[in-house]
Write a protein that binds this DNA or RNA. Sequence first.
DNA 1: CATAAATATGCAATATCGTGCAAAAACACG
DNA 2: CGTGTTTTTGCACGATATTGCATATTTATG
Lengths: 270, 270
Amino acid sequence: MDQFVSERQAHILAELRAKGRVSAQDLAQTFGVSEDTVRRDLREMAGRGECERVYGGALLPGRQTVPLKTRIAEQPDRKVALGQKVVESIVEGSVVFFDAGSTNLAVARSLPENFGLTAVTNTPAIAAELSGRPGVELIMIGGRVDPAVGAALDATAIRQLETIRPDLCILGACGLTLEGGLAADIFEDAAFKRLACAASKNSLAAITSDKLGLRAAFHVHALQAPLSLVFEADADEALVRKISLQGVEAHRCGAATSSNGKSVSRGNTP
Amino acid sequence: MDQFVSERQAHILAELRAKGRVSAQDLAQTFGVSEDTVRRDLREMAGRGECERVYGGALLPGRQTVPLKTRIAEQPDRKVALGQKVVESIVEGSVVFFDAGSTNLAVARSLPENFGLTAVTNTPAIAAELSGRPGVELIMIGGRVDPAVGAALDATAIRQLETIRPDLCILGACGLTLEGGLAADIFEDAAFKRLACAASKNSLAAITSDKLGLRAAFHVHALQAPLSLVFEADADEALVRKISLQGVEAHRCGAATSSNGKSVSRGNTP
DNA sequence: CATAAATATGCAATATCGTGCAAAAACACG
DNA sequence: CGTGTTTTTGCACGATATTGCATATTTATG
């Protein structure tokens, strides 16, 4: 069994209290069970007075019966598509360092509900996202949080990082060029990224197309193994091919069209 | 025999405390015994109240491991009112430690936009809330994040905390009694809170009324200076007065600002 | 009213549970 | 050392829980 019944219902209740409403379809998708199972949960919870059943899902009890028809407009952000592609490269049970960056926050969000891994991060936003997830062992790197980066980069953080040897380092990057490789805009950030890469067995960076060809000031990682890159669907074909020729594993994620109904409605920070 | 029974059960308990959940199948695999044996262990442990039996395994008793970020949403109005009252006690420019707890997350949310302070916290959700705020210098306490508490409590965290002397420690609490003072439900959590108090010049705890009179297992702070308490509007008048007589500064916050005064009803069945 | 979506119900497949029982090991005791 | 007792463990078997599918029914909406 992937998840205990009471755990699933607790998550439904949490989602319900956070958002005020839940959709049976989304819940089924989120937990990887059939809608029938979700409906049975909702019926049971309604019997305990934890929610009020409505057509399409459930609401908090005592509230007005807002027709749940208004589906949450989960626009399949480009970052979500990229994040899901990155998740495919993560081996279940491994130790993964999450570098700072909004793309990496999307990666954390894209982790399936019960994905088992040890997550290490110096970024509060990512830690908050992963905190409380069943299956995730979370290690927070402490220190002064650099306001420009939103992550701990100081000596304390470096000392703590040195005690950890991740299997995979998921890098954020501010720019990628064929000659310069991965680079960052902020000196301390780049230094920390280099250390994280050096400590890890493998490194992986998700590159949004707007970073392609951008030359950032401080070097992070050359285009050479051990490094994997994940590009968006519209990335420059020629450039990607050239990068592959340097011995760097390059993946490309599918188009971010809304053809698949994989709208995982978990995140709650803009 | 490969392992004594009590050893195995202790190991199960450790796993349970670490992950918040155990699966009978996994445990049988881990220890190389049959699932029947594991089930017998779990049944016995449940009899002692060490775990809560569920179909497929066991969970930590009582508390549900609901992500902290959703716990905040449970009683928004009251928590916000309490948070705003606590903020009034924070001196601009001081160094403030934010303990774990949904109430303290509300305090962090209630900080005015440009409030200047140095915030120290071991709770990812609070760090994420304060990260990026202009005026806030954020220090993150790192370490393994206890899933039941949602904060770093381990040796790494303690070592890092020892390097900091906050002006104010904003405590979370699971229970408050006249005789026992502030107490917490989880041992490691209580130990960390005690250290945080000891390191800080002053301590302050926001007490939701549902915690009043509740006796939690592990002592955190006696009702004596240096300690301030902030109560809700509907807190027991007599109890608050008795607490004041012990030399503890007691504040009371006004009624919830929202128009609906009846937003809190426990176990309401429509 | 027509249609599509969501729901309830029954049913079968699978997983898990509890109990009784026997074998093996550890133990108590003479 | 020998013997009876207790503890632990695995296995068998019936009971129970969970889940997905099929089907009939209800609901929302144009």
